[in-house]
Design a protein around this nucleic acid. Structure first.
Lengths: 137, 137
DNA sequence: CGCCTATACTTACTAAAAGAAAGTACATGC
DNA sequence: GCATGTACTTTCTTTTAGTAAGTATAGGCG
């Protein structure tokens, strides 16, 4: 089919083998993918592309996230090596979060997805309206 | 940094305004983003990039998905205009799912994210191991 | 005729995850 | 010595996901 789809220059596994490693439930990529594409994971990565932020700053900018979920989300991203957590040993605590090199790579791809959706939000919402009126009307 | 990352030529909203429309909980992009980045939404879009598939084929290829969740996921993607559902009026039922034009656009971006993770899965898993051994050991 | 099969769902119930709210730790200022 | 600020954690409730069984129905077979 179309081989000019990916913008990256690295050969992808899906090109080399049959595509669909992730489609197998045993594939460890699935777990990572879920950390990255989780409700708040996407937004945290997106927010951190702007630079380093404190916990409370992230919580303010990512509207609607609870402290518990933000904490949980950041820990998962930190475990995967996407986010760097820097705690300054002062009281009250001062903790800073930033992206690692690999974190920036994933975040850039997340950003492209998010940007595409934002740019195309109007036709998408129209499609939604049409769909729901077809189903209920 | 690397400015050749984005494949699109359109100006993005995050470039034009301050970035972070999605970061506001009121932004409708969030809902769409959740459909696209949901656990099975990502995989359905990825799977459909290969072409048209029947419901049962998707269920087989996306290992682990239940009929209920696949149905729900496909309906959400259909509502957003990313997936086209074609039902042939025969018995037993024959339904085909394919990507729409906009569906291919989102799916391509999802694919890039998925591919990046698959290519880089080993260092990520190493980071995870190191993290968990730091925390528990 | 009556039963079985195949496919794409939906429905009822249970397990897991998310969300809300309160609690914890502790140096500093008043 | 009491309130404040920050980054969490814990408990409890609500929402969502997952499992398993049910539904519809044309055609094939004995």
């Amino acid at each position: 089919m179309n081989s000019s789809v990916t913008a990256t220059s690295e050969p992808t596994l899906t090109d080399k083998f049959q595509r669909g490693n992730v489609l197998a439930s045993s594939c460890p990529s699935r777990g990572v993918l879920q950390d990255v594409t989780s409700r708040w994971g996407v937004l945290a990565l997106f927010a951190l592309l702007q630079g380093t932020h404190r916990f409370s700053e992230l919580r303010k900018s990512i509207t609607g996230v609870s402290e518990k979920m933000l904490s949980q989300t950041l820990q998962a991203l930190e475990a995967d090596g996407f986010v760097l957590r820097t705690a300054h040993p002062v009281i009250p605590p001062h903790v800073e979060y930033s992206l690692t090199a690999s974190g920036r790579e994933v975040a850039k791809r997340v950003e492209e997805l998010v940007n595409w959706i934002e740019v195309n939000i109007n036709p998408i919402l129209s499609a939604r309206d049409e769909y729901t009126s077809l189903k209920s009307g």
